[in-house]
Amino acid sequence: MNLFRLVADLSHLASIFILLHKIQTTRSCRGISIKTQLLYVLVFVTRYLDLFTGDFVSIYNSVMKLFFIGSSCYIIYLMRIKYKPTNDPSIDTFRLEYILGPTAVLALIFNYKFTFLEVLWAFSIYLEAVAILPQLFMLQRTGEAETITTHYLAALGIYRGLYIPNWIYRYFTEGGAIDPIAVVAGIVQTALYVDFFYVYFTKVLQGQKFELPA
């Protein structure tokens, strides 16, 4: 564990708490893409199957995995059941098959071993890289976002961004170790946040509302 990864994981945790806080305090999931949230459930469930295979890493690692699975399911419960009337499917229109199809094919071709667990692991990595697209697409369509929602996205973006220096650090401290699947997908994932961060820094952090130019 290095500082980049620790702060990244804490930022990931923070993003989930920000999202829960937004939903609970406004009693609404307006502006949140349920498609992106469903993809995160799929990401965590397919990646963390190793919880049950005896590949124990650490208490920290297992607790975080359980938290990510549990909290993502809880968010779906809030959106699908508790605050269902505030969920507007008519603006959440990104087609999931455009994401699920290509990532499944990629996972079947590019994996470390052609086994059930390894293919699912690769799938979850590719899926996570693009899982934010329905959310960003929705933002693009509506052209604006509540400030709290932008903080959620910023925390997620920081989490992904910090994994990159973590890999560089690990490359130099762990004898040239590199995980190409995670690194390439991670760079793609981080790149998807660039436009968002531009508006976040130039508007939201200057005290203005998140609004895209018409």
Partner: peptide, 10 residues
């Protein structure tokens, strides 16, 4: 550099 799956990352 050798490709290795980093198993301790989340």
């Amino acid at each position: 550099a050798e490709p290795v799956r980093v198993k301790d990352e989340l």
